[in-house]
């Protein structure tokens, strides 16, 4: 049955895509507000993966549980990073911001390499291979849990930006920086909060990712690229765009790896990227600059 193959691939793509989307959401939120592209994003995701891996292996804490303290820790790290390292670079040229963060990324990925070595580590959850069968469609349980968790975190973030005073203030900063400063908002603090939230997203996404795939330091640049690609496809700074972009990439990767070859999944996302850049450079849900 061909349609069941497609349906399986599609479901798997959607579920993985939601986790991708959460990771990209972090990048998008940071860019949308602080106007800095976090080139160390994938490295943070990998550190999140290793954190979840260590917590599971050493203390038996399930990644679906440990994602909460990891997200909290990442929030603190992000807040501190923005306050100390990144804030002085907010008004500097783009390539200088880039170099600062690439420096950080290089340290992180090679630091992880020095500690954990180059081998891929698998969390091996007890229910890793459990699945549900719905007619001809077989759904992995972990993928469903991960997708639900990713959606929940994303929903929390959306709610924060929509309903809390701080969230609205941050959006005001993103829309009109001068205006925000004039009405007395503490822009530096709001930036730090945003960076913290962005990293919390990627930390949680990293913890979820460890349930889906093996952790290795070398995957970090690929994650950075992935998040970046998703955000550009969805539209820089658009939160919904990040989720939509994540879904699209998830589906495209799943389709390409089944229909063409597993190694072609990156090709599919880059093909999508080139297409979007050529036809709609501001991204699917982005506003024209």
């Amino acid at each position: 049955m061909l349609w069941s193959l497609y349906a399986n691939v599609l479901v798997q793509g959607v579920l993985t895509g939601l986790v991708y989307g959460l990771m990209a959401l972090g990048l998008s939120v940071i860019f949308g507000v602080v106007r800095v592209v976090n080139f160390a994003h994938g490295e943070f995701a990998v550190v999140g993966m290793y954190a979840a891996f260590v917590l599971f292996r050493s203390f038996g804490i399930d990644p679906f549980l440990s994602m909460l303290p990891i997200a909290a820790a990442f929030f603190v790290i992000g807040y501190g990073l923005q306050r100390t390292l990144i804030n002085p670079f907010v008004s500097r040229p783009e390539h200088e911001q880039f170099i600062l963060l690439v420096g950080l990324a290089i340290i992180m990925v090679n630091g992880t390499l020095m500690i954990f070595g180059p081998d891929a580590r698998s969390a091996n959850l007890p229910y890793s291979f459990d699945s549900w069968e719905i007619g001809a469609i077989i759904v992995d349980k972990v993928r469903v849990y991960a997708a639900i968790a990713a959606l929940a975190v994303a929903a929390l973030l959306f709610a924060f930006f929509r309903f809390t005073a701080t969230g609205v203030a941050i959006r005001a900063c993103a829309d009109n920086l001068v205006g925000a400063a004039v009405v007395g908002l503490d822009v530096k603090k709001l930036y730090a909060l945003t960076f913290g939230l962005g990293l919390a997203c990627v930390g949680a996404a990293g913890a979820l990712m460890v349930t889906l795939t093996d952790a290795t330091p070398m995957i970090a640049p690929a994650f950075t690229l992935l998040a970046f690609t998703i955000v550009i496809i969805g539209g820089m700074g658009s939160m919904t765009g990040a989720i939509v972009g994540g879904l699209l990439i998830g589906i495209a990767e799943a389709l390409a790896s089944v229909l063409i070859a597993p190694s072609m999944k990156t090709m599919a996302s880059f093909g999508l990227l080139v297409l979007v850049l050529a036809l709609r450079p501001q991204g699917l849900l982005g506003r024209r600059a």
Partner: peptide, 18 residues
């Protein structure tokens, strides 16, 4: 130890750009 020189490069980049 693979990666040592790269950690150094990363730090050098950050210091210089700073």
């Amino acid at each position: 130890i693979p990666g040592v020189n790269l950690v150094f490069y990363g730090a050098a980049l950050m210091v210089i750009i700073w």
